[in-house]
Structure formats: C-alpha cells, structure tokens
Design a protein around this nucleic acid. Sequence first.
DNA 1: TTGTAGGCGTTATCAG
DNA 2: CTGATAACGCCTACAA
Lengths: 341, 341
Amino acid sequence: MKDITLKEIASKLGISITTVSKALKNYPDVSEKTKKAVIELAQKLHYTPNSFAVNLRTRESKTIGLIVPEVVHHFFSNVINAIIDEAEKNEYLVIILQSNETLALEKKQVELLINKRVDGILMSLSNESNNDDHIRAIIDRKIPFVMFDKISKLSKCSKVIIDDQKAAFSAVQHLIDNGCRKIAHIRGPLNPQNAIDRFIGYKKALEKNNIPFDSKLVYACESVTFQEGIDFAKQIVDEHPDVDGVFAITDLVAAGVLTYFNDNKVKVPQQVAVIGFSNWFISQVLTPKLSTVDQPSHSMGIEAFNLLLEEMNCHKVGKAFIPRTIELETTLITRESSIKI
Amino acid sequence: MKDITLKEIASKLGISITTVSKALKNYPDVSEKTKKAVIELAQKLHYTPNSFAVNLRTRESKTIGLIVPEVVHHFFSNVINAIIDEAEKNEYLVIILQSNETLALEKKQVELLINKRVDGILMSLSNESNNDDHIRAIIDRKIPFVMFDKISKLSKCSKVIIDDQKAAFSAVQHLIDNGCRKIAHIRGPLNPQNAIDRFIGYKKALEKNNIPFDSKLVYACESVTFQEGIDFAKQIVDEHPDVDGVFAITDLVAAGVLTYFNDNKVKVPQQVAVIGFSNWFISQVLTPKLSTVDQPSHSMGIEAFNLLLEEMNCHKVGKAFIPRTIELETTLITRESSIKI
DNA sequence: TTGTAGGCGTTATCAG
DNA sequence: CTGATAACGCCTACAA
C-alpha cells in the first residue's frame, strides 16, 4: 500500500495538483463541487500530507527535543510525563534523549537535535555540564530553548526552577526545630547548581540557628544513587555516632540511608532524624515514612513547555523573545522520619 | 544565523551544487583540490544537511515512535531507557507518547505517528486495547512494528514478551511452598493479555496443589494503582480474615497491600505472605522487603528495538520480513515478605 | 572532472 | 474558479 499524494488525487479527478491542495486546505476560491469531490476521494484513499514535504516547505517539524540526565528517575519521569502531554495538546511531538549525566553524551545529543532541526529544545543539564559551548551553540543559533531544574545560571535562556536554597533551608530548619543539633548533609556532586544551592541552604540554616558548620559532616555523592545513601549512612554512623539528623540531596539517597539505619538498628527518628528532597513516590512507602520537600515536577514540565511554545511562536514570525525565568514553589512535607517529639 | 545550504557553499566557491554535494559525500569523481576546498568551507560554516530535505528524498526519517501506557512507571521507564539508548546507538531517535491506558488516546497517537511517517513503531498496549483497527492499520500499511509486554495475541507482528502464566505460577507455587493455603489474587483489569495470563498462572498453581479455586478471592484492579492495593488489602482482611497469602499483579499494588497491612498490624509474612510482580525498585526498600518476579525490562527494550531494526532494514530494501516472537526469561526473587519459615 | 536536469510532495504566487 | 510555475534543499542519472 503506497502513499497517496496530491498528484494521484489530482490525476484521478482530472484536475490540477494546485486545486487539490487548495480544496483540502479549504481555500475560499475553490468551487463547492470540486472541493467536495476532492475531500471525498482524499478520505476514501486515506490521504495524509507527507510530513517530510511539509517540513521542508514550512521549515518546521512540529517536533521538539527533550534531554534529561536519566529517564529512570522519579522526578524526571514526572516532568517527561507532563511535557509529552502538554506538547501533544499543542500538536507537538517529543523526541527524548538521556545524557546519563555525562557532558560528552549531552553534547552529542544536542548536535543530533540541532541537525534534526527540531523546533525547540528542552533540557535539564547533566552533572558535568555548565554553560558550555554546546549550550551556547543552541542559543547562538536562536533555537528556542528552555532549561529546567538543572540549569546553568550563566546561560541566556528561559528557565524553570525552584528556589533550592530556600527549600533546603526549610528542610534543615525543620530538623533543627525537631531537636537536631548535629546534622549531616549528603550532598550532590560539586558541579550542579542545584546541589550547590541545596548545600548553601543547609549552611544558612545552621548559621541562622547558631550551629557551627562542620565540613566533615558533609558527604558528596558522585552519582546520587541508592547505594551511595547506604554507604554514607554507614560512614556517618562510624565516623560521627552522635549525628542526630541527616539531610539528603534527594529521596533516593535518603532511602539508602533509611535502609542502612533500619538494617543496623539505628532508630529513626529517635536517634537520627532523616529528611530527603523531591517527594519521590518511595518516600511514602518507606518505613518510617520519609519527610521531604515536594518539588513540583508536573507543573515544571508544563511551564517549561509553554515557555518554549511561546518562544517557538515568536521565532516563527521573526519576533524577538526575551527569556524569562519561572520559579515554582516547593512544599515541606513532614512525615515520620523527622518528627522526634 | 540562517541555515547553510549546499547552494550557498556552491556559490561562495563558484562551483555547482552537484559538485559540492559529491565532494561532501566523498565521491571519487571530484578532484582532491575541489573536495578539500568544499570540506573546509563546509566545516567553517558548520554545514549540516537539511534533514527535512533528506527525509523527503530518502523517504525515511531515522525516527521511530514509541507508545507506552504510562511513562511514570518503573517497568516502562526502564524499557524506555533501553530503547532510547539502543536506538541512539543505531542512529535512530525516538518519539515517545503515552496512551494513559486508554484506547482513544492510543488510536490518536498511532495516527500521529503514521502521519509523521516514522520509520517504525514500538508499542505496549493500553488496558483497553486489542487487535483493533488502529493496530491493523499499522500492519496493513506495512509499517515496521513490534509489540512488547502488553500485546494482542491476534496481531500479526513481532512481539517481545515473557511467559506470564509460567511466571505467575512460580510466584504462587512459592507462596504455597511457604505454607500458604488460602491465597488471594489481586489481578489486573479483565482485558489485557498479561493480566489474564497471570490469573491463569495463579489458577494453575492452585490446581496443581489441589487447592480449590475460589473466585471470591480474586480482586480486579481498574487502574493498577498503589491506592487499589491499599483498598483491596482492607477488603481482603475484612472479607476473608483467614487469607494467608496474597499475589498481586504488580509491585506497586503489592506496596499498597504491605502499607495497609503494616498500618493495621497484620503481620507479614507470618499472618499473610505477600508477593508482587515485576521487581520494581520499591520492592527492595519496602518493609518487609517484597518478594516478586523479575521481569527483564532492559533486555525487553533492547530486543524490541532490534527486532524493529531488522524489520526496518528489510522494509527499506523491499525484502519480506517474517514476524517473530521473542520470549524472555523471568526470575523468582524471594525476599522477606513471603518466607514464613 | 564538472555540471545540468529532474524529482521527492507540498505550497505560495500569480496569471489565465 | 483553476492551473501553471517555482521553490523548499538534497541527491543522482546522465550529459558535457
């Protein structure tokens, strides 16, 4: 079953390609009769315009690219979910790629998307990335572009973020309010902005409460995994048996911490209170249920897509677009793992 | 910064478009000198072929479509992960869509992908779908097509599956081996093949062990959610306090069951043993750790893509392709939630 | 060794 | 109201 083209419809009806095209696009200057005949035949033959040809002429593909560090990740899969649905509502399709947290892959993927000539790009940076040349390449080429969650402050593009400092501050303040005085922080890698900001939030909360900062109580993940949570929990217990609170960069790591504590009879929250970040699904099924900070993944996806859409629409008509940054609210969620009293 | 075309390079060098094209494709019949000049200028200008034009000529887009019921789902996100990576290795990009378990959306999305003229389609059916006309449309149009996990037996296409009956049988047999005699089953919806097969596996295991089947012990999920696990656990306890084992269609539901049991002092596994299905990440962090059946999501994605690739390659050269079904092995994983002895 | 011509399928312009 | 023509950018058979 070969593809139907305008040409075929035209020849079957003995009219010109032009007229067929106009009839299908409901141009006013086609007789009702012709229009009807064309539409009927087109339906009968299941005609659909060849998108390759349409792309070539219109110079747009109604497709966007999305690069995330990982797909198997509660937060990102929720963002993806929102983006796909929002894009579909607006008649865009989404090509998804994952950088696996490496700069090399991310660069390659940006190139793939640029060469593919997607209409726009959404992206959350890998742990190794900053305002590197692949990012600047997107911006220089004026390809509509929005970063979300893991962003680089220096890039001149739209962004959708949360206030990581404030959110981390509230998490640590909560531990302090529950009597913690010696709080360890399992932070993310040194490069990503959000790991830096959460760390700063942690420090600020200590400072505000006159608790001396001790760099020995800060442990840095390399890959932010469950296993690292387990390993650092052990280190914390071994090196600082008097730690009474742990703030982990994300719930997955906190889950590792809880697992180690449970398996080794460290009482949570009585002996050590634990709080995570992001409000992953697992946080509510852990024992004890994990306190955390809710990060609005779904609205982040929606906002990011809509910012991109706005920019794509400007781009199409050659209008200038001024990048914006949208900051979304987070919510402290207190559960069993941190309530000592 | 507008796009560079062959035409521009040609005019800057004062030669023909054809020669530029040939030079870039390293044709033998271009002088070394010209070739060098062309390649240098192309690099300097960051020339990349316009993929819209290439698509139109070659009639392929190096893009495939992937439809899953849900993206926020441990099993599917693992499959997606594998497919994206495998596709990228083979220079294909992946457009992802989610049916949200509805037939209507799935139909629309199939249409979108067909109109987009993707080179192939990978799909896991929604709970409402069978060998419906949208599926037949794909096959009739000879679009390379592979179904995985949630398939329809009647469709004439390649498939990648597990033996759900056998896997479910082994899970229930395991419960029986651990002393369970009154085993409830929280099954999936009535339509999907895998829910049916797991149910059959459950029945067969009972039969094999001379345990009478009681339809009142079977509860059917509508949407296969965590909350349904909680709700059915309550029902089970209320209606059949002597149930001593529960086999849930998937770990997410089993997590709900454990949560309800934990919150209501039902001892697992002593009073009721619980086993799930799929080996989600959560299964290892639940308390007690959840027994389950490992379903090879990653290799399922890889196999599915490679089957599709094979079919796409045949399709390209007009060679016939005979659909195949690949069945992957599952593994029983026993953890705390089911070991009574 | 280089270039001309035609076509992939669609759409916009302009003339009839 | 209809249609011829050109163009989007690339590729390839064929001619020079």
